[in-house]
Design a binder for these strands. Structure first.
Lengths: 172, 172
DNA sequence: GCATAGTAGTTAGCTGCCTAATTACTGCTG
DNA sequence: CAGCAGTAATTAGGCAGCTAACTACTATGC
């Protein structure tokens, strides 16, 4: 291993510069680095969290669903869940299938809407969340432990501004 | 819609604080926010890039593979690709299958190793990359256009430090 | 009050990622 | 040089996301 640094350093500025020159583009290589490394860092932190979920038989999607349900009194319709988790209704159906199989949630027909269903957090589901919480949040905190409070504030601001910039593009 | 801000602002500090109190944890809510919003921002920017790839019949994985191939003289073994893209060899097999079907790459048996194969970027593959490059990099640049050069430098530094913090956890 | 448009949830089928197992070959070691 | 550990690529099977299409029901508008 000649590589001294982990690969939060990839691609390098040189690689980005080469690439842009190769295509003959007048784009700031540093800007490209910011975008690409943000994607990669997010995925990396996400995978680190996912690894912990897996020990409790959950995935990121399942965890987010349970957690969202808990923060909402333990009951919510699949459509609402899809909207709040920013995934499709079909995905929610799949997540609920898995969670129902393990009895972490239950499905009840809606009393108000004949088409509707309500996902209900079961006692096991709530317990599962409680079991994994300390280590989960501890791990998240550990990942950003290298940043001071001030740096975290700056980071959140910069993140928000990049997200804002990307929304403009997404809103096609 | 009462929501004035896009959802780079979710979860909110209040939500994180509530959750940590609910579980009785002594964890800094701001630290949790940083981790969670980083994951979400990375995914969002990634999806924005993916939307452009889709117009050219590619996915993020396929694009990364083609691009990596191009940066390496157009030839590489699947194992090497898996290592460099940080995915499993099985995933590379799947990506190559798709790319080969569209003739963007070709597979050749390795001359040195009887077990081995070499993925070769075809002329169409190189052309595809050239076709999408201007808009792709333009979009990446646009997403970070809200940050000054100094802010980008700070951002890259902070990102690297969070990645470093997460590596410690991943290296179980 | 009945036809039609819209919405809730599911299903089917795609991609991309994973791990585990399989097959084919290399290379070391006694 | 025979055997065996290791590596290359694929295959099989799983999950999570997607879109599109379908069913069942609601709500609206003549």
């Amino acid at each position: 291993m000649t590589r001294g640094e982990a690969d939060g350093e990839r691609p390098t500025l040189e690689q980005a510069t080469w690439q842009l020159r190769h295509y003959g583009l007048e784009v700031d290589p540093q800007a490209v680095l910011v975008a690409v490394r943000l994607i990669s860092a997010g995925a990396r932190v996400g995978r680190a969290a996912e690894a912990h979920f897996a020990r409790f038989g959950l995935s990121t999607g399942r965890y987010r669903l349970l957690s969202d349900l808990e923060g909402h009194g333990g009951e919510k319709s699949p459509s609402q869940l899809a909207a709040d988790l920013d995934v499709s209704r079909a995905t929610v159906t799949g997540l609920l299938d898995g969670l129902e199989r393990e009895q972490l949630i239950a499905r009840r027909p809606s009393t108000e809407d004949g088409r509707g269903t309500v996902a209900v957090l079961t006692a096991s589901g709530a317990q599962r969340l409680r079991d994994m919480a300390p280590e989960h949040f501890g791990r998240l905190e550990a990942m950003v432990a290298g940043l001071s409070t001030e740096e975290r504030t700056v980071f959140l601001d910069l993140l928000a501004r990049v997200v804002h910039g990307s929304s403009a593009l997404t809103a096609d």
